[in-house]
Amino acid sequence: MAERSGMVEKRGLGLWLTHLGLIIGVLFIFFPIWLAFVASTVENQDIIRPPMPVWPGDQMIENYTNALVAGINAPVALMLFNSLVMALGIALGKIAISLLSAFAIVYFRFPFRQTFFWLIFLTLMLPVEVRIVPTYEVVANFGMLNSYSGLILPLVASATATFLFRQFFLTVPDELAEAARVDGARPMQFFFDILLPMSRTNIAALFVILFIYGWNQYLWPLLITTDPEMNTIVMGIKQMFPSGDDFAHWPTIMATSILAMVPPVIVVVGMQKLFIRGLVESEK
């Protein structure tokens, strides 16, 4: 008996310690975000004059409204919209393209199939930052600077997702495709009726990752959007910093930062269940 209660006690203590550690970790990560939030709810003078306040002020509604409708170079609402278009475009575009190319590579015999696969695979080694100059040239020549297509298309072509879907399709038993063939399904029917629904958890997981990838793009939008109306929010924050002797309007900048964090959080929390299922289980 004594031994047992000792064990329970010990486990209880361990539990508390673990939680304590986790809580400290969360506070540690959360503190800067808290400061940003506080800064977005006070007046500019409160921030500039030390000490920096640690409790929210009463300017929240004014600051956020000001940021959303007026902003500094462009209204933040517009930047949010631009970012949303870009992130959705990249996530959905990548998923659509990679699903189709993985489908082609796994299920069809055509000349140079392996070559194509390795070519796609090679692009894994060429992220945007590496090919940024030639890509810029191409986009500029197509007249796609300051446009959504310019923001989205160069980032859509990539191998990661193709590779993941290929691996998943390879685990789908051949008999399934054969059964569908005997049932009279044409290749695209098989793709839409069977392969796509079977990949839905993978798609969800990938969507979350790619949405955040697209949302957090910084260098590329910075390079090709010169018009403030086309700024995305992540790079837009940087553009809000004053140049020369101007004063930075910190509450607006901080409100923008907080706003920039909201959509990815919504996506992650909203798709959490599917996301985790997609990572841990493959349904066969």
Partner: peptide
């Protein structure tokens, strides 16, 4: 013809009804 496979090859995301109906739907 109709074929029955060794590992059944049922469509995992479809109900039993839909599995049987799929060929007819097509």
């Amino acid at each position: 013809i109709a074929m029955v496979f060794q590992n059944y090859a049922l469509y995992p995301h479809m109900s039993v009804f839909d599995n049987m109906a799929y060929g007819l739907k097509i």
